[in-house]
């Protein structure tokens, strides 16, 4: 059970070597830097040192309680990333697959809208454009009804 924040790339296979011992199901999700415009040079991710680590750990602990996870892992990068590089990953381990799948989605929904990260797309001339939050990401949180209040 761990949340990790780092600038360097990660190797999920080695992270999962000792993950979820005794579980009946492990689900992993990896997010990749995507270029929707065909013009993107890089993605920069800013975070809030201290708060970000705490938020990731809180989300993991909440997921573990809610879905009775036997293990969980969140890895999230910050700094400058190239198109095609992995940004982040979550892994969830449970006795059965339904809980593992749901917990992975739960973690992703929380990460998208409540983890203190801000993405900026760096264009062809080195100019940056902050990525705007999507209403659909905010809406996704409402299905997990026990959501604590936050604007």
């Amino acid at each position: 059970m761990a949340a990790r924040l780092q600038t360097e790339p990660f190797d999920l296979a080695s992270d999962l070597r000792d993950f979820g011992a005794g579980a009946g199901a492990i689900v992993t999700f990896t997010g990749i830097v995507r270029d929707d415009t065909g013009q993107m040079q890089a993605l920069e991710i800013e975070h809030y040192p201290g708060m970000t680590e705490r938020a990731l750990t809180d989300f993991g602990d909440q997921a573990a309680r809610r879905f009775d996870l036997t293990d969980w892992l969140i890895v999230h990068r910050h700094g400058r990333l190239a198109v095609g590089e992995p940004i982040m990953a979550v892994a969830t381990a449970a006795r059965h697959r339904k809980a593992a799948f749901e917990a992975a989605e739960y973690l992703m929904d929380w990460l998208k809208s409540r983890a203190p990260f801000w993405k900026r797309e760096i264009g062809p001339h080195g100019t940056g454009q902050w990525v705007e939050a999507k209403d659909s990401d905010e809406d996704a949180l409402t299905r997990w009804s026990a959501a604590p209040p936050a604007r």
């Binding site: 997010g31 998208k112 409540r114 203190p116 990260f117 801000w118 905010e138």
Partner: peptide, 21 residues
Amino acid sequence: DLDAPIAGAREVAFFPPMTGG
């Protein structure tokens, strides 16, 4: 929220809606 008290707080941060994941 905006109506949250800040008595005794050490730091207050302001930022746009978050875009993690």
